[in-house]
Structure formats: C-alpha cells, structure tokens
Simulated scan of single mutants.
Amino acid sequence: MNVAEITGQLAPVAFGIATIGPAIGVGIVVGKTVESVARQPELQGRLTGLMFLGIAFTEALAFIAIAVSFIQFP
C-alpha cells in the first residue's frame, strides 16, 4: 500500500491533536489561580478576572488551530 493511496478526512485527527495544547494550558492557568487564591484569599476577585482572560487567550489559540485544520484538509 502506497502512502499516497491513503484517503479520508484528516480534519478530525488534526482537531484532536490541536486541542491537546490548549487543554494543558487551561489546566495550568486554573491550577495556578487556585494556588494563588489559597495563598492570598483577599485577591480572589482580581485573580479570577485574570484567570478568565488567560483562558480566553488560550482558547483563542485552539479555535485558530481548529480553523487551520479544516482549511488545510478540505
């Protein structure tokens, strides 16, 4: 079987691979926020806002990766 004969939709595979990085990033952001709130509870409101901002930026990278996977593999 020649490699050029492989057919099928590769976008779901690329989507799965593209979500690994942002998932790890969100886990780190949330974990560090929980650790920070445990150390200084009086900053919970400020840290929570920064956490959501970090999650939004991390998820934006995931959406870009998903879009590129569907553009590259129509």
Score class of each variant (00 low, 15 high):
residue 42 E to H: 10
residue 50 L to D: 06
residue 49 G to C: 02
residue 40 Q to F: 12
residue 65 A to M: 08
residue 8 G to T: 08
residue 18 A to N: 10
residue 32 K to P: 04
residue 58 T to L: 14
residue 38 A to G: 14
residue 56 A to I: 05
residue 72 Q to V: 03
residue 47 L to F: 14
residue 51 M to H: 07
residue 60 A to E: 12
residue 60 A to F: 14
residue 17 I to D: 09
residue 25 G to Y: 08
residue 26 V to Q: 07
residue 64 I to V: 15
residue 50 L to M: 13
residue 33 T to M: 04
residue 6 I to T: 01
residue 10 L to I: 10
residue 60 A to Y: 11
residue 56 A to Y: 12
residue 52 F to C: 00
residue 4 A to Q: 14
residue 68 V to H: 00
residue 29 V to S: 01
residue 21 G to W: 12
residue 74 P to S: 12
residue 34 V to P: 03
residue 40 Q to E: 14
residue 52 F to G: 06
residue 26 V to S: 02
residue 23 A to H: 04
residue 1 M to Q: 08
residue 63 F to T: 10
residue 38 A to E: 05
residue 63 F to R: 04
residue 58 T to E: 05
residue 35 E to G: 09
residue 68 V to Q: 06
residue 47 L to Y: 10
residue 11 A to G: 09
residue 57 F to G: 11
residue 21 G to C: 09
residue 60 A to I: 11
residue 35 E to W: 04
residue 63 F to D: 03
residue 19 T to D: 13
residue 22 P to T: 07
residue 24 I to M: 15
residue 49 G to A: 11
residue 59 E to H: 02
residue 43 L to T: 12
residue 29 V to L: 01
residue 42 E to M: 08
residue 26 V to N: 07
residue 58 T to G: 10
residue 37 V to H: 08
residue 51 M to Y: 07
residue 44 Q to V: 05
residue 74 P to N: 09
residue 31 G to R: 07
residue 24 I to F: 14
residue 14 A to I: 00
residue 38 A to L: 11
residue 2 N to Y: 10
residue 28 I to P: 03
residue 23 A to W: 05
residue 35 E to D: 07
residue 64 I to F: 14
residue 45 G to V: 04
residue 51 M to N: 06
residue 23 A to C: 08
residue 9 Q to I: 13
residue 35 E to Y: 04
residue 72 Q to N: 07
residue 32 K to N: 07
residue 45 G to N: 09
residue 51 M to S: 03
residue 7 T to D: 10
residue 53 L to N: 02
residue 48 T to K: 12
residue 13 V to Y: 15
residue 66 I to H: 05
residue 22 P to V: 11
residue 62 A to L: 12
residue 55 I to Y: 01
residue 64 I to H: 03
residue 69 S to Q: 01
residue 56 A to H: 09
residue 46 R to L: 13
residue 2 N to C: 03
residue 52 F to D: 00
residue 24 I to R: 07
residue 27 G to C: 06
residue 3 V to H: 12
residue 60 A to W: 10
residue 27 G to Q: 00
residue 50 L to I: 01
residue 25 G to D: 04
residue 64 I to G: 08
residue 31 G to W: 01
residue 18 A to F: 02
residue 71 I to V: 10
residue 30 V to F: 06
residue 23 A to D: 07
residue 40 Q to W: 05
residue 55 I to A: 09
residue 56 A to G: 15
residue 35 E to A: 13
residue 24 I to N: 05
residue 50 L to K: 11
